[in-house]
C-alpha cells in the first residue's frame, strides 16, 4: 500500500482527486478554482504603481485567498517530492539543463504568462472549472490551448526538443 502511494498515481485516481479541488475551494472559500490570476495579483502587489491600469487599478488584496492557495501548491510540491516519492521526479528533460534550455523556459514562460492572462484563464480556470460549469468560452479556450500546443510540438518540435 505504502509502496503504491510512493509510485506515480494512475490517471483515473489523479483525475478524481484533482477534480475535487473545484468543490473544495467553493465549499471553503466560495471561489472558483484558478491559478493564472495569481500572476496578476503578484504583479499588482509588487508594483502597485506600474503604469498599467491592469495592475494599478487591480485590488490584489481581494486575491489574498488565491496567493495563499498558491503557497499551498508550493508546499505540496515540496512534500510530494520529499516524502511521497520513491524515486526522484524528473521534471524537465536533461537537455533543458543548458543555456538553450534556460532560454526556452524563459521564452515559453513569457508565452504562458501572456497567453493565460489574455485568455483569462489556464488549465484550471478554463479547462477544469470552466468546462465543469458548462461555460462554452472555456471550452473554446481549451481547444485553442491544444491548437497552440500541437502547432509547436508538431511544427517546430524537432528543432526545439
Amino acid at each position: 500500500m505504502v509502496s503504491l502511494l510512493l509510485q506515480p498515481w494512475p490517471w483515473w485516481l489523479s483525475g478524481i482527486l484533482i477534480g475535487l479541488t473545484v468543490p473544495f475551494l467553493y465549499l471553503v472559500a466560495g471561489k472558483g478554482f484558478g491559478i493564472s490570476t495569481s500572476l496578476r495579483h503578484i504583479g499588482a502587489a509588487c508594483t502597485p504603481n506600474a503604469p498599467f491600469e491592469y495592475l494599478n487599478k487591480h485590488n490584489w488584496r481581494g486575491g489574498t485567498w488565491n496567493l495563499i492557495f498558491i503557497g499551498g501548491i508550493v508546499l505540496g510540491g515540496f512534500i510530494a517530492t520529499r516524502f511521497l516519492s520513491a524515486e526522484t521526479v524528473e521534471f524537465l528533460p536533461a537537455s533543458y539543463y543548458s543555456a538553450g534550455g534556460a532560454l526556452r523556459l524563459l521564452a515559453g514562460g513569457v508565452l504562458v504568462g501572456f497567453g493565460t492572462r489574455y485568455a483569462g484563464g489556464c488549465t484550471s480556470g478554463h479547462a477544469i472549472t470552466g468546462i465543469s460549469n458548462l461555460n462554452w468560452p472555456s471550452l473554446v479556450a481549451t481547444i485553442f490551448f491544444f491548437v497552440g500546443g500541437l502547432l509547436v510540438t508538431w511544427g517546430i518540435g524537432s528543432l526545439l526538443f
Binding site: 526556452r104 504562458v112 485568455a119 500546443g149
Partner: peptide, 27 residues
C-alpha cells in the same frame, strides 16, 4: 480566448508547465 489560448498552449508545450505546475516545480 482564442489568441491568448493558443499562445498559452505554445508556452505549455515548450515549458511543460501550466501555471499550477510552475509553482509545484519550484516547491
Amino acid at each position: 480566448v482564442i489568441f491568448g489560448g493558443m499562445i498559452f498552449g505554445m508556452g505549455w508545450a515548450i515549458t511543460g508547465a501550466c501555471p499550477g505546475p510552475i509553482y509545484a516545480q519550484i516547491g
